[in-house]
Design a protein around this nucleic acid. Structure first.
Lengths: 329, 329
DNA sequence: ATAATATGTGATAACGGTTTCATATCGTAT
DNA sequence: ATACGATATGAAACCGTTATCACATATTAT
């Protein structure tokens, strides 16, 4: 059933029906007729036909590197909450960390498929930048700072600095580092810089043999812990870029009878739910992921209403969560 | 730029352009012209205009109760993998466990917004059934058995039975149960039935004071553990419907100096990543969530090709993962 | 009293594609 | 030589909406 048939059934004009769904001028009389016919026929207008003419899709594209990650799903939850309330649906693209899929979904959204885009990528190339600036709909980047674009991000440097400082203040002298891909400016580069800043302040020289780059997984953390603990120099604290990495490190410690925090303190960033439940509760830095999603979505809504043309970068702060893994007396 | 302008720029007819994108008869000569023009103009056809005429959206609606759950995001990952490869995009609706949003998104998809629907709901009412049967596009239910519909589900009863039996075989005499909402036929009812079946087989009578219904969260598991351990009768094993619940129980045990598995064994269903990392590694039942997503998506693809009209229920089996929490000698 | 504005109305063009149709050419089997 | 199917083509109808337009009436301001 289309709008013409429905209008006939309701005894009103096609224009009246369209106005009913679009808040135009409409008499109470017609409004009632339409509502009655709606009840009996179950008619609903076609989104695509509406889009062809009005260019409005009521769809927001969300590009993310994976789904099964606590931080990402928290961000998405925030996004979904805000946009859902405004009647937007989410077109979700899981790129599975595949560069090509990331690019091709940006291509996809360059057309009139969505009204706006939220991008959660970890590594940005020139091609990303170029596609983003060619984008004809507003785009928001969550979790990274990218000059010239609208971003909501975390204070990754500060988070890493504070956690490292916490461990050094507790008396650690030989810090180790297990970080993430430095091409990821947030979780990789900035957390590294924060770690280094704390060391510099404490006048401790960084030992390269105690630095590793891991993937975002427990397994990878486990493996890198193995490398570090087989060095001549033994660390008395380890800063991990993510909770998952820290969990892997802990697993290694348990299996090798390395006591936490007595032999080695462990601190991380991310504050996942799991952290509290580990065999030694993990000290971590809470980042406001859901808030990032909420703020990103709000920013996008603003952009979609009237393009402000001024690009903003919003940085969210953090909370230190101190637990037993850094509880040395 | 629309198809008419583009056709002019490429020096071919509008029909030729349409055929290029839809695999119709087209000479090599025209194909090359179009590809060249595509390169220089960056033209892309509008999805919505295509949909108006052809009714094909290349969109699949996915309705889920929440995003930040490991099991759900694994299912979604499977779905996204299969459908992405076939050129489908996912229209994700997070209902936040809100009955009304669940219903309204089914309403939404009843129109020509998507080519198919995958539903991950936990509780089914008559209204769900009625909306699902009125649905004009194929729908698949993942995680639940619903007669008369296409489903991919887990053997929840068997999983709970096997885990409970494992603990009874190890010598447990006083089993306790922390389950989920019984209106959830899979995680609630079936896991309860599996637990009861194992007890019946072992000739053990169920003590109602040692049975609790928790929410799907660690906090809720913690609270219910408190209730159970303050009963006169002390359990020597606890079956938990989910890993999250079990994690809460463990937290309670640690804080109250209840030894696992010496004082009480703990077994659960779900096999989340966290289980391995708990202070006592958790025995759990592995359910093939990602496979469920993959199979559900494949089933949907089949339905979308040619509607088979026969409804299938596919049940996936499980693996017992035995760890220290049930390691009594 | 009149102008200006807000409200209400239906016919029809427009949106940007695909599908249908009528027609033409080619290679190959009869 | 003829018939047939596969390939190729462009014009025009069509999909289901919204936007525009021209026009009518009610309400308020001058």
């Amino acid at each position: 059933m289309n709008i013409t048939e429905f209008a006939k059934a309701a005894g009103v004009s096609v224009s009246a029906v369209s106005r009913y769904f679009n808040d135009g001028y409409l008499s109470e009389d017609k409004r009632l007729k339409i509502e009655a016919a709606l009840e009996s026929t179950g008619y609903m207008p076609s989104y695509s036909a509406r889009t062809v003419r009005s260019k409005v899709t009521k769809l927001v594209g969300v590009i993310l590197p994976k789904l099964s990650s606590e931080s990402i799903s928290r961000v998405t939850e925030g996004i979904s909450e805000v946009l859902g309330a405004e009647g937007f649906e989410l077109l979700l693209v899981n790129t599975a960390n595949d560069y090509n899929r990331e690019i091709s979904s940006l291509e996809l959204f360059r057309q009139n498929r969505v009204d706006g885009v939220i991008l959660l990528a970890s590594v940005f190339t020139d091609l990303h930048r170029s596609l983003l600036s060619k984008m004809r709909v507003p785009a928001i980047i969550v979790g990274q700072k990218l000059m010239g674009f609208n971003c909501v991000c975390h204070n990754d440097l500060g988070a890493a600095y504070s956690m490292t400082k916490l461990m050094l203040d507790k008396g650690a002298k030989v810090p180790a580092f297990i970080g993430a891909n430095p091409e990821d400016n947030a979780a990789g580069r900035d957390r590294r810089l924060g770690f280094e800043k704390a060391l510099a302040e404490a006048g401790i020289e960084l030992d390269k043999s105690l630095c590793e780059i891991a993937k975002f997984s427990m397994e990878s953390g486990y493996e890198k812990a193995g490398r570090i603990f087989t060095q001549k120099k033994k660390p008395d604290c380890i800063f991990c870029a993510t909770d998952n990495i820290a969990a892997g490190v802990m697993l290694y410690c348990r299996e090798n009878n390395i006591r936490i925090p007595d032999d080695v303190m462990i601190g991380a960033v991310g504050d996942s739910r799991m952290g509290r439940l580990l065999y030694v509760p993990l000290s971590s830095v809470h980042l406001h992921y859901k808030t990032a999603g909420i703020e990103g979505a709000k920013m996008l809504l603003n952009e979609m209403k009237g393009s402000s043309s001024v690009h903003r970068i919003m940085q969210l702060e953090y909370d230190i969560i101190e637990r037993e893994s850094t509880a040395r007396l």
